[in-house]
Every structure is written in C-alpha cells, then in structure tokens.
Design a protein around this nucleic acid. Structure first.
Lengths: 325, 325
DNA sequence: TTGAAAGCGCTAACAT
DNA sequence: ATGTTAGCGCTTTCAA
C-alpha cells in the first residue's frame, strides 16, 4: 500500500510537496507537480483518509441514524439528507438503530469514535443521550423526534395537530367510534399522535392500542380492537408499516376499509393508491425533513455558536377513499 | 477533547497502561486500572478511533453500497448484513448509489479512503470497478449482481431461471401474449430477467420494454405496451418498484390484474398481499442474501487467501391471484 | 517555492 | 506488571 513518502521518493521531492500538489493548497512548480502526479499514478497511490483526518481533526462524513431502514418514511428522509449533503461535498452513512436503544448507542459510539463531522438522529426514546457527542463538539440534529431534554437543532412535524385533524376528518365523515393505533410509549411521535387523537375525541371516549411500529404488532392490536363486542368503526393508524398490519387484519375478517371501517394512516407510502379503496393518509414531508435537517447540521458545523433552531413542518391530509363510507 | 495522555497524567501512569486497561489486552494491576478508569470517567475521555485505526491498520466497519435505498429488496439485504455483522462486532454503514455510477464511485472512494474493513456492493453496471479497492487489499463481495470481469466472492440469485419459470407460469395460465418489463441494459439483473423471459417465449415472440428500476418509468413503459393496437395480455415485471408503476398504469385504464392482464412481478414487497387481486411474485431471499454476503466478507477478512466463492440462491414463485384469469 | 520536522492520538514492541 | 519509545500516514508550521 503506497504511502505519501513512497510517492515523494519516487518523484524526488519531499512529502510536503506531494501533499501540497495533491491538495492544491499552496502553489507548486508545475514541473514538480507533474512529477508528483506521475509518481502517484504509477504507484497507484491513494491518500489514507484516516491519517489525513487524524491530522486535520475533521472528516467530511455525516452519520444519519434512523430507527427503521425498512420504513419508506425514513428512507425518504435519507434521500433528502443525502442530496443536500452531497452538493457540499459530504458523504452520509446510514445507520439503522432498529428502534433499539442498544443498537442506537452502538452507532452513536461509532460516530463518536470515527469523529464524524456531525450526526442526524431520530431518537428511539427517552433514554437516548447525545451528551457525549456534544461534549466532544460533534453537532447533532434531531430528526422527526425531539431529543429528550436538550435545546439543539431539530426538525419536526406538527404531528399532534395532524393527528387531531385526521381524527376530526373521520368524525366529520360520520364515523362514531374512532379508535387509535399508535406506537410504543416513550416514542415521541407515537405519544404525540395519540395526544392529537385525544384532543379530537376527548380522553374519556378514547379507544386505543399501542404496538411496535411494525406490521405484525399492528395486525394483532387491530385484530384485538376489531374483535371487541362493540368494535370501533374507524381507525387512526400511526404509520404506514402499521397500516400494513391493519389492512391484513381487515382482510382476515373480510372487512372493507371505508365502508365497514374508516381508516386514516400516517405516511404516504408508495402503495397507498394501489389498494382498494385507496388509503387516506397524513402525508409528512419526509424528503424535505431530510433536506432541512442536513442544512441545519451543515450550518452548525460551519458555525457552532449559532442559536439552536427548531423547524416544524406541516403534514398534509390526503383525502382518499378509505375514510368514506 | 481529552486524549490518552491526559488520562495517563491524571491517573499518574503511562499512556501504555491506559491503553492496556481500556483494551483489556495485557493484564494490569487492579489498583492502577481503577485509577485509570476513574480518570477517564472524570475527563469524559473517549478514545479517538481514527488514531486507533491508523495505528492498528484496521477498522471494524463494513460498507454496504446499494443502488436504491427505497427499494425493500435492498433494505432487506441491509438487515441481513447488519444482523450478521453485528454479532461479530462489526458496524455497517449503508451507502446509496442511486443506480448512479458517479455516486457509486464516490462511495467506493470514501470506503477506500476511510480504509473500511470490507465492502459489500451491488454494482450499478458494467463500468463499476473495484480494482483500486482490491489493490489496497480491501475485500469486496458482490451482492445481487456480479462484478464485471472479476472472480471475487459473490452472492447472486438465479434470476434468469426464475424469470423463465415465471413466464412459463403465465403461459400455463393461458395468457397468450406475455410481455416483459425490465430494467436498463447493462444492469445485470435486468438483462438476466429478460433472458429468462426470452428462454420461455422465444426471442422471436418477445415483446418487451426497458425502463429505469423505478415506478415512474415503468408506468410509462407499461402504458405504452398497453396502448398498442394489440396489447399484451400478461406482463412479467422485473422488480417491485416497477410493479407500482405498472399497477398505476392498469388503474388508469381500468384494467384488472389477473382477469384483464396477468401480472407477475419480482420481489415480494410488504404490500403485495394488500392489493386486489394479490400479486403473484418471484420472491428473492433478500435477507438471506445479506447474511450470506456478510459471512463471505467476514471470512475473507479473516483469510484473504481463500478461494473466491459464488453462492447462488434460489428465488421462489409465490402464486397468488394476479396471474390467474 | 521547497524541505525538515513536529505532531495528530493511539498501540505495540521492547526494556525494565 | 509497567514504562519508554517508535511510528501508523498525513498536514502544516517554520526556515531556508
């Protein structure tokens, strides 16, 4: 593995000159530069980024830690982050915490040890802590869910309001017993969506279940709800992976969305218009969330003293057929 | 940012002792060890992974470069890779090449510069080259698509055979004009699936279109096919993102899958059973592909001299309703 | 413009 | 069992 001194030796110059040539920092004699380039080429030389970063005390990589790589909402965020980061010359590496505190901590540690330039994180829960990162001066921006007890940059969605609105939409469409299926306690979006639902129906009338943000758990929870003596006639579902489970539960019982039971789900997954009836959803601006978050992070990397900012984006109800009788 | 010497100074020992304590390599006096740990704690010390890796000439991170982070097939692979890597203490960072040679090259460069322990790659096309990686001794295993002109480790699916089988299935279900919608030329899976289709219908009877591996392009291509004077009565679709486009094209024309036009698609996405009629698919063992690939990579990291192995997994036709009249 | 040399933070001989 | 020290590959003063 050729090093910079190999190149220097071959070109008959000092390592400093090689470094200067390759980085185009200071100006070097064209003649020497040519020799350097040639030597580097011949040797198949590739700078060792580890050494460079160690010396420079900086890296051009961002870490994005999301809680479910199989959820289109998060992959869409990833696209947004990546597109923005790339034009500024940053690479982004995606880590999947899988809604699991341990995995999340591991990836946070990796980010810390590798001394990435910054991290974007959708915290798994209230236990998530980034104080270690912050102490080392590595900026963190929270995405989709706020970081417990900190005042850093964050980009969120007004998801409580969206849930309230979606519930009211169901009520307005003359569903009388609207229930809510949300994620685990402690997961902020799950709690907020439930609160929004409470806002609309009143806590005393609330019917709800919690399950993991996954199809399987949602299928059971929905089944449980549906099999009650007096089942709900409408369901607010907290994300699209859960919606899959819910729709399976309906199919198992030969229930038709809309006619038999009103459904509104969070997240406009690619398949929501394919099913019959098409799914009414609360569309979150995932790609935009990613872009904004990356912007915030880059801005903070450039200037660590700026005031923390919280950007709250709006979700949008897309009214399709599953919320009409 | 506290360094190892800060800790050493505070604990009144040498840096070597600190290093030994923290890495549990050699044995150190419990008394000293305690002092070290305490000092580290007080200082909020976290080892600098860059320095460590530079010194050790190794990292415990794997790079997984996939061509579409929004495609469930690839995210499923990612899960497989991650699950296996994790138990061996490796972290995996996901990079999205977006079916784009430039992005792919950028991420390959990042992997190279960061001197990752190994890379798993689903090459975007024939131009993909990993010789630079290999020259530096960084092992690469190809996933889902073979690496042009090399004999490294790879894990593939016998996709040609699967396509042939799927086409025959359609023919056996008395569809008479089966067409094929596949990905771009040069993308190996796209070409192989087309070949499998040729195998079944004969090249002279072939009706096919190519489009990007995305919903939008597939929608147009399918529309084009469907609007022919004598349209096909069945379609073999090369992946699930394309299937979304195809189903949209059907809906626009009030065509019903199965009855009006037989459909078989590659990849068993989560939503395929939700639509009406449920989609007949060729299910690829994505998660398993990821696991096996990670295994191969780890094995090669451990022993760079072992013979390259190609593992070919089988896909499975899941017969549902969209391929029956 | 160029080179010599220090040093980023860590680990691993080697010596004690 | 512990410390001393060299050095991983690079960038960047500082002199020349």
């Amino acid at each position: 593995m050729a090093t910079i001194s190999d190149v220097a030796a071959r070109a008959g110059v000092s390592t400093a000159t090689v470094s200067r040539t390759l980085n185009g920092k200071s100006t070097v004699d064209p003649e020497l530069a040519a020799r350097v380039l040639e030597a580097a080429e011949e040797l198949g030389y590739h700078p060792n980024g580890l050494a460079r970063n160690l010396r420079r005390q900086e890296t051009a990589v961002l870490a994005l830690i999301i809680s479910d790589v199989e959820n289109p909402f998060f992959t869409s965020i990833a696209r947004g982050v990546e597109d923005l980061a790339q034009v500024s010359g940053y690479s982004v590496v995606l880590c999947n915490s899988d809604e699991n505190e341990d995995k999340e901590r591991r990836y946070l540690d990796v980010a810390l040890q590798e001394r990435v330039a910054g991290v974007l994180l959708s915290p798994t829960g209230p236990a998530t802590s980034v104080t270690r990162l912050r102490r080392l001066g590595i900026p963190v921006v929270a995405v989709d869910r706020p970081l417990p007890g900190t005042d850093g940059d964050q980009v969120l969605v007004d998801t409580r309001r969206a849930a309230r609105q979606a519930t009211r939409h169901l009520v307005a469409n003359s569903y009388r017993r609207v229930a809510c299926l949300t994620g685990p306690p402690g997961v902020r979006t799950a709690d907020d969506r439930l609160s929004g639902y409470f806002d609309a129906v009143g806590e005393e009338n609330a019917i709800f279940r919690r399950a993991e943000y996954r199809a399987e758990g949602a299928r059971h929870a929905a089944g449980d709800l549906l099999d009650q003596p007096v089942p709900p006639d409408a369901l607010l579902v907290a994300n699209s992976t859960m919606a899959i489970g819910v729709l399976e539960a309906l199919a198992e019982r030969s229930l038709r969305a809309g006619r038999d039971i009103g459904i509104v789900s969070f997240d406009d997954a690619p398949w929501t218009t394919l099913i019959d009836p098409p799914l009414t959803v609360v569309a979150q601006p995932a790609y935009e969330i990613g872009r904004v978050a990356a912007q915030l992070l880059l801005a903070r990397i450039a200037d660590s003293t700026r005031e923390p900012v919280t950007t709250t984006l709006d979700a949008q109800l897309i009214d399709r057929q599953s919320s009409h009788r």
